[in-house]
Amino acid sequence: MSDPADIPAKALFVATPAVRRRLRSQRVAVVCLSLASLAIFLPLAAVLIGLVKKALPALTWEFIVDVPRKGMTAGGIWPALVGTLYFVTLSLLAAAPIGILAGIYLNEFARDNWLTRVINLAVVNLSGVPSIVHALFGVAAFVIMLRWGQSIRAASATLAVMVLPVIIVATKEALSAVPRSFREACWNVGATRWQTIRTVVLPNSIGGILTGVILAVSRAAGETAPIMVTGAIFYKVVARGDLFPYSINEQGMALSYHLYQISRNVPNMPESMLYATALVLVVFVLAFNSVATVLRVRLRRRKKW
């Protein structure tokens, strides 16, 4: 054994070969991880840049607010844009309250019994159901059984069913992220469960819940299949810039469906209009997603626990 004083001070705290090996493997890991993240980002960037480039010739204010002309090959996309707003708004009006209330019930009140477990399982599975299956369900339930026919309300109801699990799951997660100690603090001054939820749990989870709702919006806006057979229509005569052109009992145009149609079934479609339509749809969805992100970050920064 050597006396500590014998060790030259220079050798102190210098990485040994074993330490260097560990550092090397960490560097490799970091490179792999960052490449993987880049692999997520690059396609998105490429898609966006490609879209913008090809869409540029057609992208004008007129394109947004004008109606399609000359068998879709000229004019704009206004009826489809407004139609998408219709579908999204109506489906949210139905899905958000039900989803949020169900999420609250499942997370706060439901006892852990077989029924609750079945419901939770159903929620999870519902979110995995392909959208074309939702479409068929929508036809059977809303179009045929409720006799709504192919209409905006039938399509919106179908979309609502589709995004319901998104909202329920997000609500449950947001609620269960509220620390148990907050609830105990409330119960201990004699709050009922409902008072606890209203005064403490909801105010502290509203960010997460809203995030879920907004993600539901972007999902509803992007889907084609569920509305294709329940209420979307190829063309409808609408006044230029009209904000309320549809009644919910009739069919309406939608961006996603419009895009599908003009890319497959319209001859002589100018390419730039095709891409401009796609770009508008993507921006619509991305805008909502960014709002969700900003909201989440804001609210997270505001609360401290």
């Binding site: 105990e184 409330c186 119960w187 201990n188 403490v200 609360k303």
Partner: peptide, 16 residues
Amino acid sequence: LRKSVGMVFQRPNPLP
């Protein structure tokens, strides 16, 4: 009951 029997916890849990 909880009104007249109050409880203080291990970790302070003030409400936000």
